[in-house]
Design a protein around this nucleic acid. Structure first.
Length: 108
DNA sequence: AACCTGACTCGCC
DNA sequence: AGGCGAGCCAGGT
């Protein structure tokens, strides 16, 4: 199991209607410093329909401007469709919709 | 094969 | 309190 695979596994665990930060994904993998790698992993291999990349946001709750699977605006729409509240067009209401606890990926 | 960079985050000044 | 640098992994040049 590569680091990227762990990232994908963690992202898939994000409950519908909630979002997680790159840091939380990284923490779920075992190293919160991997936040950067998390973003890169999704960037290079965002398996369409399998990995809900749209549920991954920055620690502020702001969606990444580099979102490229349909536009950052598209990401906001998908989240809203799942019931995720927004503070504004690009900021998710973290204190209410950010996943509380993400399972730790123990795979290697 | 080594170096640079990239959807980030945290710590120190 | 805000800005800058370091750390992590993988892929491309």
């Amino acid at each position: 199991m590569t680091t990227f695979d762990k990232v994908y596994a963690a992202v898939r665990l994000i409950p519908r209607g909630s979002v997680a930060t790159y840091g939380q994904i990284a923490a779920a993998i075992g190293n919160k410093r991997l936040a950067r790698v998390v973003g890169y992993a999704l960037h290079v291999n965002p398996e369409p329909g399998v990995i809900p990349c749209h549920r991954v946001v920055k620690r502020d709750g702001e969606v990444s401007s580099a979102f490229a699977f349909g536009g950052a605006n598209r990401q906001a729409e998908l989240l809203k469709a799942e019931g995720v509240g927004f503070l504004d067009d690009s900021h998710v209401d973290m204190k209410h919709y950010c996943v509380r606890a993400l399972p730790l990926i123990l795979e290697e």
